[in-house]
Design a binder for these strands. Structure first.
Lengths: 184, 184
DNA sequence: GCATCACTATTCACTATGTGTATAGTGACG
DNA sequence: CGTCACTATACACATAGTGAATAGTGATGC
């Protein structure tokens, strides 16, 4: 439960309530997908059920009740273990483009697959340009620049693969050598 | 439901039963995580409920009953739509290492974060060596070589980021300039 | 003075996806 | 002829995330 660990991480600094946690999260982890409120409360409930956090008090400050949570010792221990462990570099690496292109070949023909790959490349290039723009804009805060760097590096890795796949499928389409219906 | 689409893709070629689909999947999509049998049957049930596939017959060949499914017209249409659409290049790119390093800074100090980053880099390098070995082994089938290529490209992107982050955090640790507790 | 709006804060029912275990039939092997 | 490996499925469960509803407060306009 990685979202859980993130919330626990934010709680490490002191007690907070759900609404506040959502705000803190979105502010600190720019570039990551914003948390939905619903998810915050759902996750807090699950953490509480596991005994990693506990509700300390119900405050009332200018508005509706707020339930303040804080880390328990068990929570702090679990969090420490999580921080100490590496994110296991996925033993299985799903290549969604290869998967889809392969299915395009199963469903249709090389043309369908190649049409998909070109569309995908175009979409990637668009996103790439967007991140590049963000990155070169001098008013972009450093944290967002770094998020963009990460995104660009991975988009670039995808693009390389897409190019190779397109080359291979084009070779299939002008078939000097046709031996495989699987480009993964 | 991407697993659903993959199964439908495999069904596009003709009727099959669950057990067979699992085998076909794992064989065709090497490098991807193998499907659990449970998931295959669960997904088939869900696809049937949506009207995308239907059970055509219950065979019996040397063993227990097998239920053969085939695509319906609705299923074929949905599959075609899925193949035609690009995988939207995630508008939000989660950087799990940045997240964890940031939380390490919240929970502990720069030392904890830097310890984590070094461990993570080591784990990535290990995996990298493994893929490289697979790739250079002449007996590795082409499909696995390509899967390895994709994996390596992304591991490499991660490693670049990890290096940068380590540089930054080391600079923090020998603090000439300390202004941020957030390296994301 | 009151309608309405924006903001704070939470709840709940629901969907989607995946897991783990139990069950059951068949042939092969010693 | 017991048990082992393989084929095949079902079912209850866990986990993560979604979307709409509810409710309190203060500010703003008229």
């Amino acid at each position: 439960m990685s979202t859980g660990h993130v919330l626990m991480g934010l709680l490490a600094a002191g007690g907070r309530h759900g609404y506040d946690l959502k705000k803190a999260h979105d502010e600190r982890f720019v570039g990551a997908r914003p948390l939905a409120f619903g998810q915050v409360y759902a996750t807090l409930e699950r953490l509480q059920k596991k005994g990693f956090i506990e509700a300390v008090e119900i405050e009332r400050v200018d508005g509706p009740d707020r339930t303040v949570y804080r880390l328990t010792d068990a929570g702090r221990a679990d969090l420490a273990a999580w921080v100490g462990d590496v994110e296991p570099p996925a033993p299985f690496v799903a290549n969604p483009f290869a998967t889809k292109a392969t299915i395009a070949l199963l469903v249709g023909d090389a043309d369908l697959a190649s049409r998909y790959l070109r569309k995908q490349r175009a979409a990637h290039l668009d996103r790439m340009r967007e991140y590049t723009r963000v990155k070169t804009d001098p008013s972009t805060p450093m944290s967002e620049v770094l998020a963009a760097d990460y995104a660009i590096a991975h988009l670039d890795a995808d693009l390389r693969w897409l190019e190779t796949a397109l080359d291979r499928i084009t070779a299939l389409h002008h078939p000097l050598t046709t031996e495989s219906d699987d480009i993964s």
